[in-house]
Simulated assay, not measured.
Amino acid sequence: MSSQNFYASMGGLPPQTELLSSKAVFTTAYAVIPRTVMTDIVTSYLPHWEGTRAWVISRPMTGFSETFSQYIMEVQPGGGSDRPEPEKRAEGVLFVVEGEMTVEFEGTAHAMRAGSFAFLPAGSSWTLWNSSGAPVKFHWIRKAFQEVDGLEPPPAMFTHEDEHPPQAMPDTNGVWATTRFIDPADLRYDMHVTIVTLEPGGIIPFMETHVMEHGLYVLEGKAVYRLNKDWVEVEAGDFMWLRAFCPQACYAGGPGRFRYLLYKDVNRHMPLW
Rank of each mutant, 00 (worst) to 15 (best):
G12H: 02
G150R: 12
P155R: 05
V196C: 11
P165E: 12
K229H: 01
P170V: 03
E104M: 15
N130M: 03
L20P: 02
A8S: 08
K137G: 03
A118G: 03
G201F: 01
D162F: 07
M207A: 04
F26P: 05
N5A: 06
P205D: 11
M61N: 10
S9Y: 07
D230M: 06
T179S: 13
R259S: 03
Y251G: 11
R268P: 08
S132K: 07
G256H: 10
S44I: 12
T36A: 08
G51H: 00
L187D: 12
S125Y: 10
T17C: 06
E50W: 05
P165W: 08
S116L: 06
I195A: 02
P247H: 00
P15V: 10
G133E: 11
T179L: 14
V211Q: 12
W140G: 01
V93H: 07
I203P: 00
M101Q: 13
G202Q: 06
N267D: 14
Q167Y: 08
V234P: 02
P200F: 04
A177G: 07
E18L: 10
L272P: 00
S9F: 10
E100Q: 14
H192L: 13
V175P: 01
L46S: 05
T179K: 10
M270N: 08
Q167C: 09
W176Q: 05
F26H: 11
G254E: 08
E161Y: 10
P205I: 02
Q167S: 12
A185D: 14
H214N: 09
V103W: 06
G12C: 06
P166S: 08
Q76N: 11
R89P: 07
E66Y: 04
W140L: 15
T108C: 03
F206P: 00
T27M: 01
H164Y: 02
N173C: 07
G78N: 04
A109I: 12
T62S: 13
Y217F: 12
E147D: 11
S125I: 07
Y217G: 01
K222A: 15
M240I: 14
D149L: 13
A252S: 12
S9E: 15
P166D: 10
P14C: 04
F158I: 03
K264S: 10
E163Q: 14
P15E: 02
R259F: 12
R259T: 10
G133S: 09
Y225E: 04
S65L: 10
Y263F: 13
V218D: 06
S124E: 11
P60A: 06
E104N: 14
V148Y: 09
P121S: 01
I33W: 02
T178P: 11
E233S: 09
F117D: 08
Q146H: 15
R257C: 09
K88T: 12
P15W: 03
Q4F: 11
A111Y: 04
D238G: 03
L46M: 07
D230H: 00
L128Y: 02
P86N: 02
E220C: 00
Y225H: 09
D186E: 14
P271C: 01
